Simulated scan of single mutants.
Amino acid sequence: MTAGHARLSRAWQTQSLLLGYPDEHLLGRLDLLTQAATSLGDAPLARFVGHLRATPPAQLAADYVATFDHRKRCCLFLTYYAHGDTRKRGMALLQLKQTYAAAGLHLVDDELPDHLAVVLEFAAAQPGQGRTLLLEHRAGLELLRLALRDARSPWADVLESVSATLPPLIGDQRQAVAKLAAEGPPAEQVGLAPFAPPEYMPQTEGAR
Score class of each variant (00 low, 15 high):
Tyr80Ser: 01
Val108Asp: 12
Trp155Cys: 09
Glu160Ser: 13
Leu93Trp: 00
Asp114Thr: 02
Ala6Tyr: 05
Arg208Ser: 11
Arg138Val: 09
Phe77Cys: 07
Phe77Asp: 14
Arg145Asn: 09
Pro22Lys: 03
Gly171Glu: 08
Gly140Gln: 08
Arg47Phe: 01
Pro194Gln: 14
Leu33Asn: 02
Pro194His: 10
Arg71Asn: 11
Leu78Gly: 03
Leu146Thr: 13
Val118Gln: 01
Leu60Ile: 15
Ala139Pro: 08
Gln126Tyr: 08
Arg87Ile: 09
Ala156Asp: 02
Glu111Pro: 03
Leu17Val: 01
Glu160Asn: 03
Arg10His: 05
Ala123Arg: 00
Ser16Lys: 04
Pro154Phe: 11
Ala176Val: 02
Ala6Asn: 04
Ala58Ile: 09
Gly140Ile: 01
Thr99Gln: 05
Thr99Tyr: 00
Leu45Arg: 07
Asp150Phe: 08
Glu111His: 11
Val108Pro: 03
Ala182Val: 10
Ala193Lys: 13
Val158Lys: 01
Tyr64Ala: 10
Gly20Val: 00
Tyr21Asn: 00
Gly41Thr: 12
Leu135Pro: 05
Cys74Arg: 02
His25Cys: 06
Leu19Thr: 02
Arg73Phe: 08
His51Thr: 13
Arg138Ile: 14
Thr14Ile: 02
Leu143Val: 14
Leu30Ala: 12
Val158Ala: 02
Arg174Thr: 07
Ala125Asp: 11
Thr165His: 09
Gln15Arg: 06
Ala151Leu: 14
Thr165Pro: 07
Leu45Gln: 03
Gln35Thr: 15
His115Met: 00
Ala3Ile: 06
Leu8Gly: 04
Gly50Leu: 01
Gly184Ser: 09
Arg174Pro: 09
Ala156Gly: 15
Gly28Thr: 06
Asp42Leu: 13
Ala103Glu: 04
Gly28Gln: 08
Arg208Met: 07
Gln59Ala: 15
Ala207Gly: 13
Tyr81Gly: 07
Arg152Trp: 04
Val119Ile: 04
Arg53Met: 07
Ala36His: 12
Ala6Gly: 02
Thr34Phe: 08
Glu142Asp: 08
Asp31Tyr: 04
Ala176Pro: 11
Gln59Val: 13
Thr38Gln: 15
Pro56Gln: 15
Leu133Lys: 04
Gly128Tyr: 06
Ala54Asp: 15
Arg145Lys: 12
Ala66Asp: 14
Leu96Pro: 10
Gly20Tyr: 11
Leu32Ala: 12
Ala103Gly: 03
Arg145Leu: 11
Gly191Trp: 04
Pro168Phe: 05
Leu148Tyr: 08
Ala37Gly: 12
Gln13Leu: 12
Leu146Gly: 09
Asp157Arg: 06
Leu33Trp: 03
Leu76Lys: 10
Glu188Val: 13
Thr165Met: 08
Leu94Tyr: 07
Tyr64Asp: 14
